[in-house]
Design a binder for these strands. Structure first.
Length: 196
DNA sequence: CAATAGATCATCT
DNA sequence: GATGATCTATTGC
């Protein structure tokens, strides 16, 4: 904890999320997710565009599960999949426009011991290099579905002295519909992305 | 190494 | 009743 002054990082305002989903997905790279004492730098994201995107949960319309996606931006959408994994998304675009950004990988920054304990692995590259892994590492579960990430114990923040980054783009992973769209973004060369 | 099978359940048809 | 924005262990070259 001593090496982490992340509490002083500026919280991203709601206006950050109230933009086109693609732009939000790209700009989230390098930002820092903070939950309690755990923190990680976003190194990989995917955009899910909503009604016109067959791969997006929201493409089927408003249901109990997708309610959060149709709500205001700057909230977390957490869902349970494959009987054992949670995935974290951040809602983008204006209320009623159900875009969201899947957080696919983090570079662990703070709370590494807790992350190792929760994940049951040692290698830092293995702690949060995948959407299901990072929710475990960060202690994020369904209880945080709908949470406002612009205030409180669960936030997304901006590093005051960001390192220059090169952003790469490619097809999304693990989907069968609209799989060719280049809506995956990652930090080129990062050891912490889910795939090389 | 790469490929694949199994785990396991909320959500929607 | 089928599907799925995944992960891990195991099998097979």
């Amino acid at each position: 904890m001593a090496e982490c002054s992340i509490r002083d990082y500026r919280i991203l305002p709601r206006a950050f999320y109230n933009r086109p989903t693609r732009v939000v997905a790209r700009d989230l790279l390098g930002k820092v997710i903070v939950h309690g004492d755990a923190a990680g730098r976003i190194v990989e994201t995917e955009a899910y565009l909503g009604l016109k995107d067959a791969a997006a949960h929201a493409s089927r319309g408003l249901t109990p599960r997708t309610k959060v996606l149709f709500g205001p931006p700057g909230h977390a959408y957490v869902y349970f999949i494959y009987g054992m994994h949670c995935c974290l998304n951040l809602v983008a675009e204006a209320e009623g426009s159900p875009g969201c950004v899947l957080i696919r990988a983090l570079e662990p920054l703070c709370g590494l011991d807790d992350m190792r304990r929760r994940r049951g692995v040692e290698r830092i590259e293995a702690l949060a290099s995948g959407p299901g892994k990072l929710t475990v590492a960060m202690g994020i579960g369904l209880a945080l579905n709908g949470a406002d990430v612009t205030a409180g114990e669960f936030t997304v923040r901006e590093c005051p002295t960001p390192e220059p980054v090169t952003i790469a783009t490619g097809p999304r992973i693990g989907i069968t519909k609209a799989a060719h769209w280049p809506l995956r973004f990652w930090l080129k060369g990062s050891r912490f992305v889910s795939r090389a």
